[in-house]
Design a binder for these strands. Structure first.
Length: 809
RNA sequence: CCAGGUGUGGCGGAAUGGCAGACGCACAGGACUUAAAAUCCUGAGAGGGCAACUUCGUGUGGGUUCAAGUCCCACCACCUGGACCA
């Protein structure tokens, strides 16, 4: 068979006959299968693309055979930094390179012959898409969930721009090597923290990998504790700390405040002003990662100020130290040197007192002791357990009005503004008279202008485009200015799965509520684990928000999630031009795309990935030829068998078991096992082929079923053979075969017999016997009988069709 | 440091608590061939034994169980995240 030719042939026929068109009128058995859409890069499809798209296409084809109306759309996440950086380097406008790359990728993805629903294609940099990105922004704004606030950013004084955390290497700019400054700038945020609790609890309702759920739980970082107010000595001011260990409150010997804290300037005693200001300057030069690394030495200085412990009325010193972060909780912590290792280190270094208030329930207590124990030196709470005290102490503080129970999350609000050109414009207008005004929905989209000077300079490049910036206020009609920043691309991708089903058909609303409720949630979502705390969290947030404003009725966008593992180069690193000598196209030319796909399915575990090895490709091709030979041989063999012989039963058994297990394996993305089962069936066919009197009907049934079962994994190859054995187009309009349970239940099964848990014999036994009858047969067995003779059986265990275990004394 | 994941032949990898190593590769043997390749068939975890058979085996050490790769505890190694989260 000439694989190149048949691939061309069938790709064309499939496209011409629109065999995979999604039937959007008939949603009773819809299946929404989604692969994370990709960023349009210019290079040709590499093995990773085949791994991602080819195998999920196979899954889609499998669901289609099962009778599902499969919706598997495709599109591009087209805004973003790479195009812009490429543009800055080459001078090619991001719009031009992006459009070009999309075209190239579309052609190549179509050439895969995959079943994607191209008529629903969606491209995030198209105005008819980003109109809805802007609409979403405005809804968030109107509901108080999009807001501006001052927040620290990484600023490079030599490149004159804000840079992302990832571009800061050891505190310096990765491009020019200048020391990065931490600067407060006014920025746009989405209030994802409003949904912290629900994002956490919702994880229990979805079928996702545990690993991914754990990543999100960690990221959200719920911490249950209390806030405690400390009065400032000599000032009418109080400092609030957050603690998860209220039981250690009697052990507080100092307080620590973050260098960026707003109240700090008021709290410094004049004689300490210089040293504190020097310290603040020093720490502003460190980036957050170096500063907060647990391995960095703890530093800090005294402010000259004392605060008063509400329970003991003791005066304790207030320090400023950069191991405390201003953005978590209140930005002030209580120092309990005896029961926190950081506080312990700090106290040792600055000679602060260490006061033990918890002791181990049994044995010597060694400081710092950070576990729960029994309270000591804590007035009326002495003898309480840590757990009890955590409640009782806060209850007391509540009565005094100086503390309260509090839950904190590590999750921060989502910073969405980018001082970049190639992104979705933020639909906001600033008017001197009316303030911040959202663009009216009827005026959307705010189109991204085609400008040529898009170099980043710290403020949005759009700011230099006067035509764009100058507008009129929608409220008062007087001249006003637009927002110059654009949106993070993760905003674009946070709702695309909701928009897909009617992407090009509905220009009146983001999506129709009823239709959306029928099409979603996504039944199966496939994509990389690296999006666990980004895209996957944002999408969940936006879905919950849209539910709250009445646009849809479900809580979670992705019911089921799979991550592909990564296909790695021979050096165990991510595939690149450097470590791979051959492209997907090279392999396809030599072996065909079906062989490539089958090899990928069979040789690595899909969810784990692994090092790419092309060794097996020729064997997979050999396997395909083995399939072809037996099918072509059997198609004209009418057989002569009259009775249903043992050999026929065996083939029928393997056939039915294969039908059953391949489906189960596909369902869990265990493609390697699915292919193994199919190989077993082929082996069984070759074995049956040696029988002289063969059953023609069984052979016909077997080759047809084999082709259907194999078709999702080798679509062109099986479609071609389906035609060659004289069947009607198309194999993909067939149904996945049903298996016959009675054929899988064998008449006799081999049972392993154990005496005292050790296997001593294997006996063929009628599978219909009851446990008692099985035991009888086993005990009559010569070997068993001789071994149990004269001994007492104390226990008999029968596992039907598997094991009999006799415990004797 | 913390969290999560992984650990099974020479290799990729299978195993609802129930015969570990399915399937495939590499390997060995046989058939076909002048020969090779391809194809078809057979064998095979490791050690011991001519053999029937036997001992040991899923990172290490313990535990639960009639029965553990699978469940529990501790440890080791590797991978991936997170970094002092109060």
């Amino acid at each position: 068979m000439n694989y190149t030719e048949i691939e061309k042939k069938w790709n064309k026929i499939w496209e011409d006959t629109k065999i995979y068109k999604f039937d959007n009128k008939n949603l009773d058995k819809k299946f929404y299968l989604l692969e994370m859409f990709s960023y349009p890069s210019g290079a040709s499809l590499h093995l990773g693309h085949w791994w991602n798209f080819g195998l999920s296409d196979s899954f889609g084809r499998f669901k289609r055979l099962q009778g599902y109306n499969v919706f598997q759309p495709m599109g591009f996440d087209a805004f973003g930094l790479p195009a812009e950086n490429y543009a800055i380097k080459t001078g090619i406008h991001p719009e031009d390179s992006t459009r070009h790359n999309i075209k190239v990728m579309e052609e190549q993805l179509k050439a895969m012959g995959a079943t994607f629903n191209w008529d629903y294609e969606l491209i995030t940099c198209n105005p008819d898409y980003y109109k809805w990105t802007q609409w979403l922004f405005i809804q968030l704004y109107k509901n108080g969930l999009a807001y501006q606030k001052e927040a620290p950013v990484n600023y490079c004084p030599s490149c004159n721009t804000i840079i992302a955390n990832e571009q800061v290497v050891d505190g310096v700019c990765e491009r020019c090597g200048s020391t990065i400054l931490r600067k407060n700038m006014k920025q746009w945020f989405f209030k994802i923290t409003k949904y912290a609790e629900e994002l956490l609890s919702g994880l229990d309702t979805i079928d996702w990998p545990e690993k991914t759920k754990a990543l999100q739980r960690n990221w959200i970082g719920k911490s249950v504790g209390a806030e405690v107010d400390f009065k400032v000595d000599g000032l009418d001011e109080k400092l609030t700390v957050f603690t998860s260990r209220a039981d250690t409150l009697y052990g507080v010997t100092f307080l620590v405040i973050a260098p960026e804290h707003k109240l700090l300037s008021k709290l410094i005693k004049p004689e300490y002003k210089k040293q504190v200001e020097d310290y603040i300057l020093q720490s502003s030069k460190k980036d957050e990662i170096t500063r907060t690394s647990s391995t960095s030495p703890k530093t800090g200085v005294f402010t000259g100020t004392y605060v008063i412990n509400p329970l003991t009325s003791e005066k304790v010193p207030l320090f400023v130290a950069d191991y405390v972060i201003s953005t978590y909780a209140t930005g002030i912590v209580m120092g309990v040197a005896a029961h926190d290792s950081r506080d312990y280190d700090f106290a040792k270094k600055y000679n602060l007192p260490i006061k033990q208030v918890i002791e181990k329930c049994e044995g010597e207590t060694e400081l710092p002791f950070t576990e729960y124990g029994k309270l000591v030196n804590s007035a009326e709470f002495d003898g309480f357990s840590s757990e009890e005290a955590k409640t009782k102490i806060v209850e007391k503080l509540e009565k005094m009005g100086e503390g309260r129970f509090k839950i904190n999350y590590k999750l921060h609000d989502w910073s969405v503004a980018r001082q970049r050109y190639w992104g979705c414009p933020i639909p906001i207008i600033y008017c001197k008279h009316c303030g911040t005004v959202p663009v009216p929905e009827k005026d959307l989209p705010v189109k991204l202008p085609h400008i040529t000077d898009y170099k980043p300079d710290g403020s949005g490049p759009l700011g230099k485009c006067e035509e764009y910036m100058n507008t009129t206020c929608p409220i008062c009609g007087r001249p006003a200015r637009r927002e110059a920043d654009t949106l993070d691309t993760f905003v674009c991708s946070s709702f695309y799965m909701l928009r897909y089903p009617e992407s090009l058909h509905n220009n009146d609303e983001i999506f129709n509520r009823d239709y959306c409720n029928k099409m979603l949630p996504v039944d199966c979502y496939v994509g990389g684990v690296e999006h666990a705390t980004g895209h996957l969290l944002y999408s969940r947030f936006i879905t919950k928000f849209l539910r709250d404003i009445g646009k849809l009725d479900f809580d979670e966008p992705f019911k089921r999630l799979f991550h592909q593992g990564m296909v790695l180069g021979p050096d165990g690193k991510k595939m690149s031009k450097r470590n791979t000598s051959r492209t997907a196209d090279d392999y396809i030319k030599e072996y065909g795309s079906d062989a490539l796909r089958l090899h990928m399915m069979f040789s690595l575990k899909y969810v784990d990935g692994g090092i790419w090895n092309d060794e097996g490709l020729k064997h997979i091709k050999a396997f395909m030829e083995r399939v072809e030979r037996i099918i072509l041989k059997w198609q004209n063999d009418k057989g002569t068998s009259k009775k249903y012989e043992a050999e026929e039963k065996e083939l029928d058994f393997v056939l039915n078991r294969t039908i059953k297990e391949v489906a189960e394996n596909f369902e869990t993305f265990s493609f390697n096992s699915a292919v193994a089962r199919i190989m077993e069936l082929v082996n069984a066919m070759y074995k049956y082929d040696t029988v002289k009197e063969k059953n023609g009907q069984l052979m016909e049934k077997t080759i047809k079923n084999l082709l259907i079962i194999l078709s999702p994994s080798a679509p062109h190859f099986t479609e071609e053979l389906w035609e060659q054995i004289g069947e009607k187009y198309s194999i993909f309009n067939q149904r996945y075969p049903k298996y016959d349970e009675s054929k899988i239940a064998l008449d006799t099964v081999e049972i392993a017999v154990q005496i005292n848990s050790k296997i001593i014999a294997r006996i063929d036994i009628d599978s219909n016997l009851s446990n008692e009858e099985v035991l009888k047969v086993v005990k009559e067995n010569e070997k068993v009988a001789s071994l149990i003779n004269g001994k007492t059986i104390v226990k008999e265990i029968v596992v039907p069709k598997r094991i009999v275990n006799l415990i004797v004394k």
